[in-house]
Structures are given as structure tokens and as C-alpha cells.
Design a protein around this nucleic acid. Structure first.
Length: 255
DNA sequence: CGGCATGTTTCGCC
DNA sequence: AGGCGAAACATGCC
């Protein structure tokens, strides 16, 4: 999905519909249960929630989770807050609309060519870790409790049960700034290392938020594709698969 | 044209 | 038991 930063952008766009009354719901049956979602008709949207990469519309009777997977785009009142999603389609086709909610004063659509989007009534978010925009101290605390694990630090950061909202780009960017090799086993990091990493995560999140999204980092998609030199000194970057995800890092500056 | 892509879940194998 | 890797999902883009 878009990562947590994009979910936050989507959530604030969806907030435009607060206090509107839902007049119709159309859903691709492969992306959500038609019966439960159409039960929302008549409800008023009274708020929008976000935790990590998950967004939910709150009505007086229920909550609907909007999960965007990799290529889901939100369109509110005909406007896409993120016009061109990285790794998403260049154009938009109405046939890719997987959810359309009409209200008395506007509309919301989720457009996803890849059809991985999911819409769930009254979702259970209790298994998610703390939100990635939490203070650095809280992020560090969450990581400390998991440092006994022997998985790589990258795997830990991608685990939504530990910190919710970090995705592949934010994780690579954070580890680059922290100077930590993504393959490092969690249990070999000191508590000082972990707290320092949490500070870097927090700084990266704040910085990329101000720049406009997860794709605006030093290790941006253009650099990732081209595998250009290390932004610090031009030395060759490494590309490898970790935890099933393409990982870019500098073996000289990340140890 | 082949391989890759901001993600999650499931399954089989240590 | 728990963790890891591969596969599955589905389709546009480089």
C-alpha cells in the first residue's frame, strides 16, 4: 500500500466527507462483502481513523476499513490526493473502481487496478503495533521488546505487529540514515543502537512527510531502479532481497 | 518481452 | 513453537 504516510494523506482527504450521509455503496465483490458494506447506507460519516497503513471511516453504527494494498488510490469528490502513485498505474480507469461510496454531498472511490484493495466492516486492529508517527521514545520502546528476535532488523521494521505504518521505502531510508546494515540480526543490536534507530525513523518520517510522501527520500524509486551510487560518496549500492522485499543499501555506510 | 513493483496472508519446512 | 522463505494474489509499468 501506500505506506503509512500515504495512508495519512488519504485519511485527511477522506475527512472532507465527515458529517455527510451515505446514500449508496457499490463494491467489487472480490474486494469486500457486499451485504455488510451496503448496510452502511443511511449512516452518517462522523469521523475518520488511521492506524499505520489502515484507514477507516467511522459512522454512528459501524466502521469501514479501507485497505489500499500496493496500488489502491483514494479519490474524494473526484480529486485524487495522490495523483500518481509510485509503482501504480499512469492512468485511471473507472473499471478499476473497487469501492464507490456516494453521500448526500460528495463521493469517495477506491481505484485499484491490481484488485488487492480490501474493505472490511468493523475491522480488528488490535494486533497492530504502535503507530509509526508515535514519538521516537515510544518507537524505541516497541523495538526494544522485540530485540530478542533473531530475524533481521529490516524484517522487524516491516512487521506491522511491532510498528504499524512502515513500508519498504521508509524502512530502507531509515536504515540508511541510521547507518545500520538491513541484514543485522535484531539480537546483535545494543539498546543504544535501537534507540538511535528509533530517532532516525522518527526524523525520516517527519522529513518525508514534509516532502510529500514515502517516495521522496534519498533512496527514492528512481535511484532504486537505476541502482545509482551511494548518495554520500557515489560508491556502488547493494540490492538484495530481504524478507521478500527488494532492499537497497550501502555496505560501506551501513554496518 | 521478462521481470519487477510503497503489501499481506498462507503454507510448508525446518 | 516459532521463525523463515516461497508462493499466491493480479495487473500495469520499465
Amino acid at each position: 500500500m501506500p505506506e503509512g504516510l500515504e495512508a495519512a494523506i488519504y485519511a485527511s482527504a477522506a475527512a472532507e466527507l465527515v458529517e455527510h450521509q451515505i446514500t449508496s455503496v457499490e463494491v467489487d465483490e472480490r474486494c469486500g462483502d457486499i451485504n455488510s458494506l451496503t448496510s452502511l447506507v443511511g449512516d452518517h460519516i462522523c469521523g475518520v481513523k488511521r492506524h499505520g497503513k489502515r484507514v477507516a471511516l467511522v459512522t454512528e453504527c459501524a466502521e469501514v476499513e479501507l485497505y489500499f494494498a500496493m496500488t489502491g488510490r483514494l479519490i474524494v469528490n473526484g480529486v485524487a490526493p495522490i495523483a500518481a502513485l509510485e509503482y501504480g498505474p499512469a492512468n485511471e480507469r473507472r473499471e478499476w473502481d473497487r469501492l464507490v461510496i456516494e453521500t448526500d454531498r460528495g463521493s469517495l472511490r477506491v481505484n485499484d487496478p491490481r484488485r488487492w484493495a480490501r474493505f472490511t466492516l468493523d475491522p480488528d486492529w488490535s494486533n497492530l503495533g504502535i503507530d509509526f508517527m508515535s514519538p521516537a521514545q515510544a518507537l524505541g520502546g516497541a523495538l526494544q521488546t522485540q530485540c530478542h528476535r533473531r530475524c533481521s532488523i529490516k524484517t522487524l521494521l516491516l512487521d506491522q505487529h511491532v510498528i504499524a505504518g512502515l513500508g519498504n521505502m521508509l524502512v530502507d531510508e531509515s536504515l540508511f540514515h541510521a547507518g545500520i546494515d538491513p541484514r543485522t540480526s535484531c539480537d546483535s543490536l545494543s539498546s543504544v543502537d535501537v534507540d538511535g534507530l528509533a530517532e532516525h525513523i522518527s526524523a525520516v518520517v517527519t522529513e518525508l512527510e514534509s516532502r510529500g510522501g514515502s517516495h521522496t527520500g534519498t533512496l527514492n524509486p528512481d535511484l532504486r531502479r537505476a541502482l545509482a551510487g551511494c548518495p554520500l560518496d557515489g560508491a556502488p549500492l547493494q540490492r538484495m532481497n530481504i524478507s521478500g522485499r527488494t532492499t537497497i543499501f550501502c555496505s560501506h555506510h551501513q554496518r
